[in-house]
Simulated assay, not measured.
Amino acid sequence: MEEAQILDVARDGIMTMILISAPVLLAGLTVGLVISLFQTLTQIQEMTLVFVPKIIVVFLAVLILLPFMIRQLTELAVRLMDMAVSLP
């Protein structure tokens, strides 16, 4: 395996990781920001208020995006297998 192929595998892995994790992280970030804004406006200083809605939204985002995540991982695995088979 040459350096270029190793870099391609690493780049594909990192891009797949970003594609899989970004939507879930953005959903959690958005909910956290909305709840924090609500807490600031109402002056509620309850620290645990953020966690329950964030956990629920992240769980729902994972459920909704699971087919997309599996498809991305499958495509990465197929590319890696094709690359492994084509090695001299």
Results as ranks from 00 to 15, higher is better:
Thr74Ile: 07
Met17Pro: 04
Val31Thr: 03
Gln45Ile: 10
Thr40Cys: 09
Pro88Ile: 00
Leu25Thr: 06
Gln45Met: 15
Leu29Asp: 14
Val78Trp: 10
Thr16Pro: 00
Lys54Glu: 15
Ile70Leu: 09
Val62Ala: 09
Phe38Met: 09
Val34Asn: 00
Ile44Asn: 06
Val34Trp: 01
Ile6Phe: 02
Val85Asn: 14
Arg11Thr: 07
Phe51Met: 13
Leu87Gly: 07
Thr30Ser: 13
Met81Tyr: 14
Met15Pro: 00
Arg71Glu: 08
Met69Lys: 06
Phe51Arg: 05
Phe38Ala: 14
Leu41Tyr: 08
Leu41Phe: 14
Leu65Ser: 06
Leu41Ser: 10
Glu75Phe: 12
Glu2Lys: 13
Thr74Gln: 15
Leu25Lys: 12
Asp82Ile: 13
Thr42Ala: 09
Met1Lys: 15
Ile70Trp: 07
Ala4Asp: 08
Val78Met: 09
Gln45Phe: 15
Asp12Asn: 07
Asp12Val: 04
Lys54Val: 13
Glu2Tyr: 09
Leu73Val: 04
Thr40Trp: 15
Thr16Ile: 10
Pro23Leu: 08
Ile35Cys: 01
Lys54Met: 12
Glu2Asn: 13
Val50Asp: 00
Val31Arg: 00
Met83Ile: 12
Ile18Asn: 04
Leu37Gln: 01
Gln43Met: 02
Leu26Gln: 06
Ile14Trp: 07
Val24Leu: 09
Met1His: 13
Pro88Glu: 10
Leu7Arg: 14
Leu7Phe: 03
Ala77Trp: 12
Met83Glu: 13
Ala84Met: 15
Leu33Ser: 02
Ala61Val: 02
Met47Ser: 14
Ile56Phe: 10
Ile18Asp: 02
Thr16Tyr: 03
Gly28Ala: 04
Thr30Asp: 04
Val50Gly: 00
Met47Pro: 03
Ser36Tyr: 06
Gln43Leu: 11
Leu65His: 01
Met83Arg: 15
Val78Lys: 10
Arg71Cys: 13
Thr40Val: 13
Phe59Gly: 04
Glu2Pro: 11
Arg11Pro: 00
Val62Leu: 11
Val62Ile: 08
Leu63His: 01
Val78Thr: 15
Ala22Val: 08
Asp8Leu: 07
Met15Ile: 13
Met83Asp: 10
Val50Ala: 06
Thr30Ile: 14
Leu19Ser: 08
Ile6Cys: 05
Leu37Ile: 11
Leu63Ser: 04
Val50Ser: 11
Pro23Tyr: 00
Leu37Glu: 10
Pro53Arg: 07
Val24Asp: 05
Leu65Met: 14
Ile6Gln: 07
Val9Cys: 04
Thr16Gly: 04
Met1Arg: 07
Pro88Phe: 11
Ala61Phe: 05
Leu80Glu: 06
Phe68Tyr: 12
Ala84Ile: 11
Ala27Val: 09
Gly28Asp: 05
Val34Gln: 02
Ile56Lys: 06
Val57Thr: 11
Pro53Met: 02
Val52Ala: 14
Val31Ala: 02
